[in-house]
Amino acid sequence: MVHLGTIAFNEAFAIQERAAAGIAAGTERETLLLLEHTPVYTIGSGGSAANILDPGIDAVRTNRGGDVTYHGPGQLVAYPLVDLSRRGRDLHRWLRLLEEVLRRVASEWGVACCTVPGHTGLWTGRGKLASIGVGVRRWVTMHGFALNVALELAAFRGINPCGIERCPMTSLRIEAGRKVEMAEVMRFAAEHLTVGLQELLPVTE
């Protein structure tokens, strides 16, 4: 597990690429990168740039699924770099695992969430709490999830998040109704990811 602090998207992407290549080659171990991004909009490979309405913030296209999203301080970004070739080679199960991990993290603050088939991510009655977008290279996962902890939600108004018009967004702080420490969220995220992996996608070979 590596804490990268607050880091620019491209910088973190370079770290991901290096680590993913090492994992695919068998020279590096599976890694979890935990970080916050400096403000940025990112678009999935198949996403539409038309969903970015605000020209004020950098927009980066990258090799993940999904459409547009916003990252910024106050949002926990987790990039679990996991070798799915040893864990059953099933992308949907990986996505479902990330949803389950997020659900468990949110429940630590008593926040009940749901998943919506066809709209991968984590939702509450108020809106979207976390986004998921994954890219796989040689069966090593890249990217992962972004959990809104206590970020300025206004930035999402500059986009159609996930390609959904006026998609409502929410945060752990709003849902919990109290202050939420980023360090604590990171700790739970790491813990639930580790446990979730062993439980739901154990190494099969």
Partner: peptide, 16 residues
């Protein structure tokens, strides 16, 4: 070589 990229759900895969 990566020849194409495909997507299922919110995951993309580089096709080699």
């Amino acid at each position: 070589d990566v020849i194409a990229e495909v997507e299922t759900d919110k995951a993309t895969m580089e096709l080699e």
